[in-house]
């Protein structure tokens, strides 16, 4: 399928960029005139993926997070990529309430939120190389 539009942005793994990333993805999706609920779901899912890249992918280090949004006739594809430490066991990481950072008051719900709020979620990860999250959301027009 031919994309209608595409954008790519990269930023440092600083927590201040979490809101930046949400706004960018939501504004990009807005051109398809989606419902408020759909925009809210996209904002939340992007926030989860970007926060994970920042706190789990890079942690104390600083690195680059890449956000890509591609618009198709009736859905948007969003990719969040980091080049940090990677996930050892993706299936385990996806389990609700599983977290490797309870010390940070993380609840282990990030992947569950992404899965619930988006229509598809794919996680590709290599230990020592990084993680790529690909999500899609149907854009039913109002």
């Amino acid at each position: 399928m031919q994309p209608i539009n595409k954008m790519r942005t990269e930023f440092l793994s600083k927590s201040a960029n979490e809101s930046f990333a949400r706004v960018v993805a939501a504004s990009f999706a807005a051109q398809a005139d989606p419902s408020i609920e759909v925009v809210a779901d996209i904002r939340t899912a992007v926030s989860e993926a970007v926060t994970n890249a920042i706190i789990h992918g890079y942690g104390e280090e600083e690195g680059t997070v890449v956000l890509t949004c591609v618009l198709y006739p009736d859905f948007v594809e969003i990719t969040v990529e980091d080049f940090g430490k990677g996930i050892e066991d993706v299936e385990k990481a996806k389990t609700p309430l599983f977290t490797t950072r309870p010390d940070l008051e993380r609840s282990g719900m990030g992947f569950t939120v992404m899965e619930t709020f988006m229509d598809s979620l794919e996680i590709e990860s290599r230990v020592g190389q990084g993680t790529r999250i690909r999500m899609t959301k149907e854009l039913k027009s109002r």
């Binding site: 949400r22 904002r43 939340t44 926030s47 989860e48 926060t51 940070l104 008051e105 993380r106 609840s107 719900m109 990030g110 939120v113």
Partner: peptide, 11 residues
């Protein structure tokens, strides 16, 4: 706006 960080904070 609230994401899972809010869940962690509330719990």
């Amino acid at each position: 706006f609230m994401d899972s960080a809010g869940i962690g904070l509330i719990l």
